[in-house]
Design a protein around this nucleic acid. Structure first.
Lengths: 252, 252
DNA sequence: CCGGCAAAAATGTGATCACATGGCGGCATG
DNA sequence: CATGCCGCCATGTGATCACATTTTTGCCGG
């Protein structure tokens, strides 16, 4: 399998109307969202370009865009990395998620109809199945789909991009924490949210969303306590070009 | 005055440690924030590059970054523009500002000390002076400084970038509305916020911040009603390269 | 065996070029 | 005089190149 195949086989054929840099961006964004990129992993323009079978230019633009969304961080040496997580930052991100997503959900309420609820239920079922099968990617993906489907009910909202940015910042640190708490997923907050939607109960919806956010990731905080400043610098992966390519090949 | 001088004289000399694209980004960002770029104005890579005395590359990257921050929008024809404003979007943006900034202010409270209050007072005085002198740029600048100073009290916060994105989206439409309400600025919400800070009254602070946001821009909504979808397409400026250059010269 | 130094490889940045696409005006035609 | 078509020019996209800086590596002396 060539690197080019990697790009072509999952998404974006030759007739993809999107520009190359948009395809690269979508790919990298999903990788970050699903936690496939290790916090300390080397992210070089040329490396990713070879990896994705494109030239450096689209990768450059995609990286810039991800830096703007705070999914990546531009270091002093002008390299790019996943921003290291600290307890303070994590706390901020969760707080921002809570206020933004609760408000976004509340503002979506007027647009809720049976069709939307049905789609949300389908996504919730998909999520539960993924949880049962311990399929992490589908789990995260379905969870994200559920939330964005709800917040986007009113059409394009100004909230969604902001929330996406927060997801991207949390994504890389979600996976490791998920493993440890995969058994703790006892209360189905999505069911509570769906019940609130059916009753058109905005307040209950806010509570369910907040609980969902806090439940899903509350345990990450303790993970962070055990390893301060996660992904700060010591956890640098293999740095030779061959080594990096190997790691990225299975992750991007 | 050459175009190069335009860049050099206000900021960023030859020994600026920042990369060119960062300088261009900062310049464009400020222009958008201060409403110096008309919603319908043509924004071309080559045009801005000539304007700013740089090559196309830094401009490309800066534009991408601003698109990621939602300050600009990538149209289907791959051109870039200030996203047209609608009542719905404006309503979203204000709602997002309120919840984010209220929360950010509340979370800054533990870090409030006399030094910070003093700096905020100084910025507020600067703001009032700018208002009295009808100096729009300083007005907006001081207002922005006041808010970001408060929200950033706890050091780098995850809230600030999100809030900045919202400011950038509102900026282009603020100026015209400001003109019409410049006389209505009767209640000084910043004073209320400062009083709340001195009393360490988090709830009062939230209320003051929310009131400040809503007061300052409440009248824009009515402006939008009179001209739906502001900057949608009809308000396209001159499109010849010479015409564009003239417009941008005095605005960027 | 370890530490530092110099050479070499790699990386980010910026510039320039080729190409396809789209917008615009001029021109012919009704 | 209005309208539709065609060609030209401007623009965005992607590739490649040169250069400065950083990082890695290999080597030498202690």
């Amino acid at each position: 399998m060539t690197a080019t195949d990697l790009v072509a086989e999952t998404q974006g054929g030759a007739d993809d109307p999107r520009t190359l840099h948009q395809q690269v961006l979508a790919r990298l964004r999903q990788s970050i969202l699903l936690g496939r990129i290790e916090p300390g992993q080397a992210l070089t323009i040329r490396g990713l370009a070879v990896e994705l079978g494109v030239s450096a230019m689209p990768v450059r633009e995609a990286l810039r865009q991800l830096v703007a969304e705070r999914a990546l961080e531009l270091m002093d040496n002008r390299r790019v990395r996943i921003p290291p997580m600290t307890i303070e930052r994590f706390d901020d991100l969760i707080a921002a998620r809570v206020v933004l997503e609760a408000e976004a959900a509340a503002r979506a309420m007027p647009y809720v109809n049976e069709a939307l609820i049905a789609r949300l239920e389908a996504e919730d079922a998909e999520l539960n199945k993924a949880v049962a099968e311990r399929d992490y990617d589908r789990w995260i993906g379905a969870n994200y789909a559920f939330h964005s489907m709800l917040y986007g009910a009113a059409g394009q909202s100004a909230f969604l991009p902001l929330i996406e940015s927060l997801w991207l910042q949390i994504g890389p640190f979600l996976r490791r924490a998920m493993r440890t708490i995969s058994g703790h997923y006892t209360v189905d907050r999505h069911s509570e949210a769906l019940a609130a939607l059916r009753r058109r109960d905005t307040m209950a919806l806010r509570i369910a969303i907040e609980a969902d956010i806090r439940d899903g990731i509350a345990h990450i905080g303790s993970t962070l306590i055990r390893s301060e400043a996660l992904g700060a610098g010591a956890a640098r992966g293999p740095s030779t070009s061959s080594g990096r390519a190997d790691v990225v090949r299975e992750t991007v």
